[in-house]
Design a protein around this nucleic acid. Structure first.
Length: 420
RNA sequence: GGAGAGGUGGCUGAGCUGGUCGAAAGCGCUCGACUCGAAAUCGAGUGUACCGCUAAAAGCGAUACCGUGGGUUCGAAUCCCACCCUCUCCGCCA
């Protein structure tokens, strides 16, 4: 949610932001709804005040005088009913309208209409050299008998996989490696619920804009999360956080579910774009005064994880047209995938300033001062995509896979995944 | 799934035969007094949201909020209905 007071004072800020992001929202509708809402509210408040005064005197009145006053109140109630109904309607429109507004982007977020406006900010490492034609992970995974799509399709449809054998060991090794690293950095590990109420989806900013991307259970009005950002952020909803505790750093392991509606034939096959995958996420609640430093530290932590695994990657500063509605700024970490001869998104790291905090009512209290907290989130390790990067980058001519050094302690003696 | 109990401010907990209740009391917290300092004691203060007055802060005023949503009533924390949640017991179950 946006700061409605700021909107009232300077709606042009929002008009500019909407244009930067290539959205189509008419702010004059917003101005009008805001005005109407306030007018109706103050009308209602005045009538209620009158009622409150009357109900203080009524017990002292007697006979006709009392009946007359009561009748008078009945009339006020009729008027109130009418105006309250009107307000309800305006209020609904108001919420519907303003829930479409994006967060205000940071001054360092490049302006652009789509992915072509993204800016590569830095690189780490260099492209690995191969003296043979590197295979993609789909071929490697099938040959090594560690990824089974065919049978997954049989029972669940497309975009599902079975992970098998060493792929399973790799997943748990990644979890161990990443959690250990994050715990040392002061992140509290969590395993959150993956089914959440609508409020959590709305509060984190995924609803209403991306509603069709998520699964809903039929009998219980619960939604399957697309990322543990949702339960982690909602964890502190309706709370005041003591500044002495900030920043609060959490990390969660969870399965994530995405409908991938509208992605049609995109990235079909393999692990890249699936309906269900496991992910370790980082989430931080920070004081607005230092949230931008925390955000850069968060990005560094993500890089540390990926550097440990030995990937070559680039950090991309995403432009206004390509970041999510709640994001003020977003970095994507794109790793080099030799099997595709491309950089592909492995992780993303977003700063949402007070956007989610406003919707979920999460504040800090600093003596007498209080305000909305800042939230930021980053992938720590999306298991599926990380497996792709491991398979494609660390393959040899025979199609064997070398396990990254940092994972070996957790692999139960496996140092190489070899063809059987 | 069945039976019962309950959801009140930061916490504990009164009120629940409708009006004087935004709500007692205790604890906690803040400020002050006492003290060399502290404890103890005493005094004062201490919810949130939204709107208005104001350029803003402070302050003042209005309204709303006693799990959520409806209803009855001139008037509801208090009565009625539905839902949600928590606890205890039973059943089922990884």
């Amino acid at each position: 949610m946006i700061d409605i007071e700021l909107f009232r004072k300077d709606p042009l800020i929002f008009k500019t932001e909407i244009e930067k992001r290539g959205l189509k929202i008419d702010i004059s509708t917003g101005i009008e709804l805001d005005k109407k809402r306030r007018d109706l509210t103050s009308k209602i408040d005045r009538l209620r005040a009158e009622k409150n005064v009357a109900s203080k005197i009524i017990p002292a009145l007697k006979g006709e005088e009392k009946d007359e006053k009561i009748n008078q109140m009945r009339k006020i109630n009729e008027a109130l009913d009418r105006i309250e109904a009107e307000l309800l309607e305006v209020e609904n429109k108001f919420l519907e309208h303003f829930s479409m507004y994006p967060n205000l982007s940071h001054e360092t977020t490049p302006v652009g209409k789509d992915e072509s406006g993204n800016v590569v900010q830095s690189y780490y490492g260099s492209k690995p050299e191969f003296n043979f034609e590197p295979k993609n992970h789909i071929t490697l995974g099938a040959d090594l008998n560690i990824i089974d799509e065919k049978r997954a399709a049989k029972i669940s449809g497309s975009r599902f996989v079975f992970l098998k054998n060493e792929a399973v060991l790799l997943e748990f090794a990644l979890v161990q490696y990443v959690l250990n690293l994050l715990i040392k950095k002061g992140f509290m590990p969590m395993i959150p619920p993956v089914l959440v109420k609508e409020m959590a989806m709305y509060g984190t900013g995924f609803f209403p804009v991306e509603r069709t991307q998520y699964y809903k259970t039929e009998l219980d009005d619960l939604y399957l999360i697309g990322t543990s950002e949702v339960p982690l952020c909602s964890y502190h909803s309706d709370e005041f956080l003591d500044v002495s505790l900030l920043p609060l750093k959490y990390t969660a392991f969870s399965t994530c579910f995405r409908r991938e509606a509208g992605s049609y034939g995109k990235d079909l096959g393999g692990l890249f774009r699936v309906h269900q995958f496991d992910k370790i996420e980082m989430f931080i609640f920070a004081h607005p005064e230092n949230s931008w430093e925390e955000y850069e530290k968060l990005r560094e932590t993500l890089e540390e994880i990926m550097q440990g695994l030995g990937f070559h990657y680039q950090i991309v500063n995403m432009c206004t047209g390509d970041i999510g509605n709640p994001n003020a700024k977003k970095y994507d970490l794109e790793a080099w995938l030799p099997g595709q001869n491309k950089y592909r998104e492995l992780a993303s790291c977003s700063h949402d300033t007070d956007f989610q905090a406003r919707r979920l009512n999460i504040k800090y209290r600093d003596g007498k001062k209080k305000g909305f907290i800042h939230t930021m989130n980053s992938t720590a390790c999306a298991i599926g995509r990380t497996l792709i990067a491991i398979l494609e980058n660390f393959q040899d001519k025979e199609g064997n896979i070398r396990i990254p050094e940092v994972l070996i302690p957790f692999m139960g003696g496996v140092e190489i995944i070899s063809q059987k």
